[in-house]
Design a protein around this nucleic acid. Structure first.
Length: 764
DNA sequence: TGGGGGCACCTTTTT
DNA sequence: GGTGCCCCCA
């Protein structure tokens, strides 16, 4: 890569048409190119636009060349979006920005060039969480530690935490050293790191940690990058952890031209090591920093913005911004108290149907929940109604067992020393090579200091493994060799297909008669298809290691989006539902138990992120009864509801919390949830009923049925057998028997033969 | 070696 | 409630 001469740098800036339409603050954020800059960009203030325009501006004015800019994002999606938008602004002239990517992908790029400096080979493998856990489990077992008391998962999260803070095993503080298995945490961490080196592997945390320490230990290499990166841009700065912060600081030391964009009010990844402090301290860390506040919101109505602002004002550790909009008026934020989770799902679905019947698109609406388990009730309801929806950020494609198995086969074909891959698939499908045999292979491999596949090769010639296992192992090794040869002259997707077929892996799922098997086969097909886009196995595996499939979601379909609040960051919808605003659910009790006030503030930021996703309409709901882990619990409204500014909220409750008893009286204004709940007769009644483990019936019967299609002859009068009806609670059904005002109806709901004996008709 | 039953667990998760 | 994991038994 060539360097830029001084004369290039001094070239005067040509006029920039792309600056048109920016407001004064946005423009300032774009044009303040030199020195440290912090852009505090509130929700909906055009953050992405500023970021991309800034990058384009630097390029278009000739201030720097594409390869001299380091632009870091957190997600691949954000990186891709930025690339596209920059390309659109400055046209085809620029062949992309090579150092635009996520912290992890850029670190991986850098690390592969200097792998030997951290005792790795440049073709190191990036481990996923699954591999990581299995490795830790092995280490814990080998150390004879009670793995029930000290779980691999626990150790993994500790190690993750240390890596997030940029700490190597020998840098742990006293407290950390003692935090696992009576002071063995440090030793285990060291063993894990050693093992990774032997296996030529990195976990996610290592990508940053190794790069960071490589820079620290090799100033000459760092200097090289100082020369290379003239401008540093960082997105979502509020979500950086210590290790990323140090990484950035080191790189920015060169020119001092670092621009961080973020919003302290939207920092929601504290539990992953993100430090809001990084953004709160920016001006101290980068003396002379220029701070630009983007406060004009282009997304939401006045009421929505005011409700969100009022809520977030309850947080103490924040820099403080005053968002405003010219979009005055609009609807107030709605708050609804509902009997239980089922009714809540019914309510939301009904609102969406109303919305749709006014000619609005399903894809304009989203349901944002605190935790993934809350999605089920909505999915059930949507499926029953045939309402189109998609779950965003659900079970991940690349984390599915069948995809990992397939990857393990390919990894082993690529590198015989990949023990983790070997262990994973040596007996998948079942070949009769059981745990005992695998243990033997592992022990021999350790003793000989060679990879397991090597050890296995030796062992099939000796008597250590006998009978069926031995033959199976021989066949397996021969297969691997054959595929490795095959890999030389096959396209990637062909190779994958051959390996999956010949290994019997596809057959294994074809013979599996469980309902999930079909989906797994489908996924494998999809995998083979997607591999057609890649030239080398290396490139493909790197891609899947660093990319999650959040980017795979298509947004063309007209579907309601269902996702967690975390998943909703950066998105916006005209209509947003925020269900489950109850103490213990949101704010999450667990989060509060662990992190106290800090966590409460983060939960509040999550609420803030939720409300600010809405453009036109935000609807918050809470229930009186919530099924949690199979138990009914009486719950009280979230404290966040009471923190919403009264003037911007319109509230109604049918649960009796606020109005003192069952009924439908509405309430307005705020109330102390504890006082009003506990003193309310309604509350007491529900609580008693709930304690027995079963909730009582709703205070009002909210279910009714309507005729939707006449199967009988009489279309206007009474229902006939064969008529199709829609019932508020049970969905679609068919009338089986009609006898005066009594009807027997069978409902369609899959797997259920629910019969409601009689109910009143409600015909239009 | 592998399948079935009992049992503990249960947030969020851009990489 | 439901899933994944472990242990025990055939």
């Amino acid at each position: 890569m060539s360097n830029l001469s001084i004369s290039d740098m001094a070239r005067p800036a040509p006029p920039s048409p792309y600056l048109e339409g920016l407001n004064p603050e946005q423009r300032e954020a774009v044009e303040a190119v030199e020195g440290p800059v912090l852009v505090l960009a509130g929700a909906g203030t055009g953050k992405t636009r500023v970021l991309t325009t800034r990058l384009a501006h630097i390029l278009a004015t000739g201030t720097a060349q594409p390869w001299q800019i380091l632009a870091v994002t957190f997600t691949n999606k954000a990186a891709r979006e930025m690339k596209e938008r920059v390309g659109r602004i400055i046209g085809e002239a620029v062949e992309g920005v090579p150092w635009l990517g996520t912290f992890h992908s850029i670190s991986a790029q850098i690390l592969r060039r200097h792998a030997e400096l951290v005792e790795l080979k440049s073709n190191f493998t990036i481990l996923d969480t699954d591999d990581q856990l299995r490795l830790l489990k092995q280490i814990i077992q080998a150390e004879n530690i009670d793995e029930k008391r000290w779980t691999p998962r626990h150790l993994a999260s500790l190690i993750d935490g240390w890596k997030n803070r940029g700490l190597l095993p020998d840098q742990l503080g006293e407290e950390d050293k003692w935090s696992f298995a009576e002071g063995r945490g440090q030793g285990l961490y060291q063993m894990y790191q050693d093992r990774l080196k032997t296996l030529n592997c990195c976990d996610f945390g290592d990508l940053l940690l190794h790069t960071l320490h490589m820079f620290k230990d090799h100033p000459d290499v760092l200097a090289e990058y100082h020369k290379k990166f003239r401008y540093v841009l960082v997105d979502e700065y509020q979500d950086t952890n210590v290790s990323q912060y140090l990484w950035l600081r080191l790189l920015a030391q060169g020119t001092g031209n670092i621009c961080c964009v973020g919003d302290d009010d939207q920092s929601i990844y504290g539990w992953r090591g993100a430090e809001v402090d990084n953004i709160l301290r920016f001006e101290k860390d980068f003396p002379g920093a220029h701070v630009v506040r983007l406060e004009r919101n282009y997304r939401s109505t006045e009421h929505i913005l005011a409700a969100a602002s009022g809520l977030i004002a309850a947080n103490r550790s924040r820099l403080g911004k005053t968002l405003w909009t010219e979009d005055s008026g609009g609807e107030k934020v709605q708050v609804r108290g509902i009997w239980d989770g089922e009714a809540e799902a019914r309510f939301v679905a009904e609102e969406i149907e109303n919305w749709s019947s006014k000619g609005r698109a399903y894809s304009d609406s989203a349901v944002l929940v605190r935790a993934a388990w809350q999605m089920r009730a909505f999915e059930d309801r949507f499926i029953m109604l045939g309402l189109p929806y998609k779950v965003i950020g659900g079970p991940r494609f690349f984390e599915r067992a069948e995809i990992r198995d397939a990857h393990a086969y390919l990894r082993l074909v690529r590198s015989p020393e990949d023990d983790l891959a070997f262990e994973r698939i040596v007996n998948t499908p079942k070949r009769g090579i059981g745990d005992t045999s695998v243990q033997k292979i592992a022990m021999t491999a350790r003793a000989m200091g060679v990879p397991m596949s090597e050890a296995a090769r030796v062992m099939v010639t000796t008597d250590e493994i006998r009978g069926k296992a031995r033959t199976a192992l021989q066949v397996f090794l021969r297969d691997i060799d054959r595929w490795r040869e095959q890999a030389e002259h096959s396209r990637l997707d062909e190779l994958a297909e051959i390996v999956l077929d010949e290994s019997g892996y596809t057959a294994m799922w074809r013979e599996d008669k469980t309902p999930q098997a079909a989906g797994r086969l489908e996924n494998l097909k999809e995998l083979v298809r997607s591999m057609g886009e890649w030239d080398t196995l290396e490139a493909y595996l790197e891609h899947v290691a660093l990319v999650t499939d959040a980017d795979r979601a298509s947004d063309d379909d007209d579907e309601v989006s269902l996702m967690t609040l975390h998943g909703a960051k950066g998105l916006e919808f005209p209509l947003v539902f925020l269900p489950g605003w109850e103490e213990t659910v949101f704010p999450s009790q667990r989060s509060l138990d662990e992190g106290g006030t800090r966590s409460l503030e983060e939960e509040r930021r999550l609420a803030y992120v939720g409300i600010t996703r809405a453009r036109e309409r935000a609807i918050i709901t809470f229930t009186a009864n919530r099924m949690i882990y199979g138990h009914w619990q009486a719950v009280i409204p979230s404290r966040f509801i009471d923190e919403l500014p009264v003037d911007h909220v319109e509230a109604k409750s049918e649960t009796g919390y606020y109005d003192g008893g069952p009924g439908r009286e509405s309430f307005t204004g705020t109330a102390d949830p504890m006082a009003s709940s506990y003193s309310s007769p309604g509350w007491k009644r529900y609580q008693t009923n709930t304690q027995s483990g079963r909730k009582s019936d709703p205070p009002t019967i909210n279910a009714k049925a309507t005729l939707i299609e006449s199967g009988g002859s009489d279309k206007t009068g009474k229902w006939q057998a064969g008529d199709r009806v829609f019932h508020d609670k049970f969905g679609y059904g068919t009338v089986k028997k009609a006898d005066g005002a009594k009807y027997t109806v069978k409902f369609d709901k899959a797997g259920e033969k629910k019969v409601v004996e009689s109910f009143l008709r409600d015909l239009p």
